[in-house]
């Protein structure tokens, strides 16, 4: 019973992730749904499967996949997001502000912590 509910929730969230990836306006927001909803969905699905199998080995495997996905999804999102900013993927027109603008060094791929125009001595606002 509980396993059924988990499986349904999981499948639903994966569908939400797919809809999000299909209709979100820019790449960064697509990444949002991809990392959060898809990972969450597959996590629930695996949890449901872990409950369904009356076998400890398999349940442990399902949990291992779940943990692995939860660890790797943010890393993958970080890599894609970083690459996206480098190749200049456009932000959605409704984006309000962009603190990253002009802070990457295009040659060395280094990232400054503040813009060059500000004095280097002042502390960042908390």
């Amino acid at each position: 019973m509980l396993a059924d509910i988990f499986i349904l929730i999981g499948a639903f969230f994966m569908l939400v992730a797919a809809i999000g990836v299909y209709r979100m306006p820019d790449l960064y927001m697509r990444l949002h749904t991809n990392t959060k909803s898809a990972t969450f969905g597959v996590g629930f699905l695996l949890l449901g499967a872990a409950f369904r199998f009356q076998n400890l080995d398999i349940s442990a495997r399902a949990l291992a996949i779940m943990i692995f996905l939860f660890v790797t999804a943010p890393v993958a999102a970080h890599m894609i997001g970083r690459a996206a900013y480098f190749v200049g993927a456009p932000l959605w027109k409704g984006t309000l502000s962009d603190d990253l603008k002009g802070r990457y060094d295009p040659k060395t791929h280094e990232l400054m912590s503040k813009s060059k125009t500000r004095k280097t001595g002042d502390k960042p606002t908390k």
Binding site: P74, G81, L100
Partner: peptide, 13 residues
Amino acid sequence: SLTPGSLSLDVST
């Protein structure tokens, strides 16, 4: 990256 509406893009060097 896993919590509400936020996604970490990069850490400065």
